[in-house]
C-alpha cells in the first residue's frame, strides 16, 4: 500500500512533479514535506484528500490520494 500524490497546474510546473507515490505519512502536510523535499508551502495552495478539499493537518492513510493545486479558475 502507499499514498498517491498529485500536483496540478502552475504548482505542477513549479514543483516539477506531476504524480508520485510515498510509502506512508500521517497528515497531508507531511505528504507535502516528503514529496517536495520540505519546500515552503505557498500560502494559496489548496489540498485535497480522496477528491475532497482538506487541510494540511488532515490525516491520511495507506491507499489515500492526496492532491495539491493552486486556486481554481474555471467557469
Amino acid at each position: 500500500m502507499s499514498i498517491q500524490v498529485k500536483f496540478f497546474a502552475s504548482l505542477r510546473e513549479k514543483m516539477g512533479i506531476t504524480e508520485t507515490k510515498i510509502e506512508t505519512a500521517s497528515t497531508a502536510g507531511e505528504v507535502w514535506d516528503m514529496t517536495t523535499n520540505n519546500a515552503d508551502r505557498p500560502l494559496n495552495v489548496l489540498v485535497a484528500v480522496n477528491l475532497e478539499y482538506a487541510q494540511y493537518d488532515s490525516q491520511v492513510s495507506d491507499g489515500d490520494e492526496v492532491a495539491f493545486f493552486p486556486p481554481v479558475t474555471g467557469g
Partner: peptide, 24 residues
C-alpha cells in the same frame, strides 16, 4: 460555487506567451 471551488485551471496564450490565470 463552480467558479470558486471546482478544480479547473486556465492557462492563456497571448502575445507574450503562456501564463496561468491566478484567480477568477
Amino acid at each position: 460555487e463552480l467558479k470558486h471551488n471546482a478544480p479547473f485551471w486556465k492557462k492563456e496564450t497571448g502575445q507574450d506567451g503562456e501564463r496561468w490565470v491566478e484567480k477568477n
